[in-house]
Every structure is written in structure tokens, then in C-alpha cells.
């Protein structure tokens, strides 16, 4: 991992419109290594557009995306992956009929000659899941048989295969139960310990406060404040999200 003092991934003055609707207006954002940044906002605040701009799913109309301080054009998710930015989407994009190992390596299978190298893949899969302290009964069960939290762990483990420096998680807790959310938050801490920068979006303030170092509030496409998670109250965050003056 290269040692750079500044942010690994940053947005500078980014705007994006869909016709007359302005989804993002002049947004600045930084993600450092060893840091969890949460982006919160109400529905329609621009969270998904922001994730799209960071992961190459869409190109902003104005402003710059910077990786290690140099401007880059993320024209495609594969370009972003190549620059060390991995995305885990809300739908997880797993094939339910394939098992954990098959899903982890889908599209990037290890081979021995012309045949698949199941042993290497299975061993690495266990190592990866153990690092994340993810509890999966077996790596040879179809993903259909796993719980929502376990599926998410598999999706995150998959995003780690390319040794990314930043992991972008879109609404990771939206579909999780209480216990699974707790397990997920532990998992995010593991990612931070491994040295990854993590950016996650959410509209659950409680989850975000539990895990984030910094919280960026989006409101109607604009940044409506940046908070130190340890020193900000729930009420302050709620006020920033909803725009209600106290």
C-alpha cells in the first residue's frame, strides 16, 4: 500500500444533473486510508448518485474525482476497480445458485491448465472470510442457503479480492436485521484495521454513529455539514439531514 498523507479518494466540486433535476451540486468529499466515512441523507438526497460518481457507474457533469491527489476519469466500473476502488451494491449481485467460492471468484476463476483450480480458490476463500471474522457454515453451500448478513459478508469478501484501497458500500444495512447489522459493523471495523478506506451510505443514523469516523450529510444534492462522529449528537445529525433549524 502506497504511503500518501492526503486522501486516497476525493471528490472536488462535483455536480450531476438528470435533466432539470440536480442530483449533486458542488460536492467535496475525502476518504483516507484507515478511515470509515459515512454519507447520510434522506431519500433523494443524492447518495446513490454520489456512489455512482465514486465507482465509475456514472461520470459527473462538473468537478473532479481524485485518486491520490491526481484527477482521474472513472468512465467504467472496471476503471475504478483498476484504480483500487471496489463497490458493493445494495443488491449484492450474487448468483444464488452458486456456492460461496464460485461467487467469490466468478469471472476471475483460478485455473490449473484448462480446468478450474478449486483447491486454491477454496483455501483463499476461507482465509478471506476468516480475516473478516465472517461466520459462514461452509464455503460450498449455495448462497441461496445463507442469511442476509452472510451474503453481505460474501459480497464484501469478493470486493476485497482485487486488494482495493477504498471500498464503497451502498446502503449496506438496509436489508439487515439487528444482529446481522451488529455483525456487519464489526466487519467494517475489520476493513478499517486492514487499512482500507471505507465509504458507506445509509439513512440509519444509529448504525452510522456506531462505526463511522466522519459523517458527511447530504441534503438535496448539497453537502449540509461534515461531522466528527465521536462528538456529534443524534439530534445534530437529524437536524442536518432534515434541514430543520433548531
Amino acid at each position: 500500500m502506497t504511503v500518501v498523507d492526503g486522501p486516497v479518494l476525493a471528490l472536488r466540486g462535483v455536480s450531476k444533473s438528470y435533466g432539470a433535476a440536480r442530483a449533486l451540486v458542488d460536492v467535496d468529499l475525502q476518504v483516507h486510508a484507515h478511515e470509515v466515512v459515512a454519507v447520510i441523507g434522506d431519500n433523494g438526497a443524492g447518495k446513490s448518485t454520489l456512489v455512482g460518481a465514486l465507482t465509475g457507474a456514472l461520470v459527473p457533469d462538473e468537478g473532479e474525482v481524485l485518486v491520490d491527489g491526481s484527477p482521474v476519469t472513472l468512465s467504467d466500473p472496471s476503471v475504478a476497480r483498476g484504480l483500487g476502488i471496489a463497490a458493493v451494491f445494495q443488491d449484492l449481485a450474487l448468483c444464488a445458485n452458486l456456492d460461496v467460492v464460485e461467487n467469490l471468484y466468478l469471472g476471475h476463476e483460478a485455473q490449473r491448465g484448462l480446468l478450474l483450480d478449486e483447491v486454491t480458490m477454496e483455501k483463499h476463500a476461507w482465509e478471506l472470510l476468516n480475516q473478516l471474522a465472517a461466520r459462514v457454515p461452509s464455503v460450498r453451500v449455495p448462497v441461496a442457503a445463507l442469511s442476509g448478513g452472510q451474503r453481505q459478508a460474501v459480497a464484501i469478501a469478493r470486493s476485497l479480492l482485487g486488494e482495493p484501497r477504498v471500498i464503497v458500500l451502498d446502503e449496506p444495512t438496509a436489508a439487515l436485521g439487528l444482529r446481522q447489522t451488529a455483525e456487519f459493523l464489526t466487519l467494517v471495523e475489520r476493513l478499517r484495521e486492514r487499512g482500507h478506506g471505507v465509504l458507506l451510505t445509509s439513512h440509519s443514523l444509529a448504525d452510522v454513529q456506531a462505526v463511522a469516523d466522519r459523517i458527511v450529510v447530504l441534503r438535496l444534492g448539497r453537502t449540509n455539514g461534515e461531522f466528527d462522529a465521536a462528538r456529534t449528537s443524534y439530534e445534530e445529525l437529524l437536524a442536518a439531514v432534515t434541514g430543520i433549524q433548531r
Binding site: A93, C95, N97, L98, L106, E109
Partner: peptide, 28 residues
């Protein structure tokens, strides 16, 4: 059978049959 179970092609076939959109996102 060998192609379906033990090669990259076979795995892609099963993935596409299971969830074509997820397979596309995974780079198949």
C-alpha cells in the same frame, strides 16, 4: 459434464442461468 463443472465456461453458464444481471456485474 467436464466442461460444465470444471471450466470457466461452465461456471459462467451456470451463473448466467442463475442470475444473468449478477453475472454481468461480476464480469462474466
Amino acid at each position: 459434464d467436464l466442461l460444465l463443472r470444471r471450466t470457466r465456461w461452465g461456471r459462467s453458464v451456470r451463473a448466467v442461468g442463475g442470475d444473468a444481471e449478477a453475472a454481468r456485474k461480476a464480469g462474466v
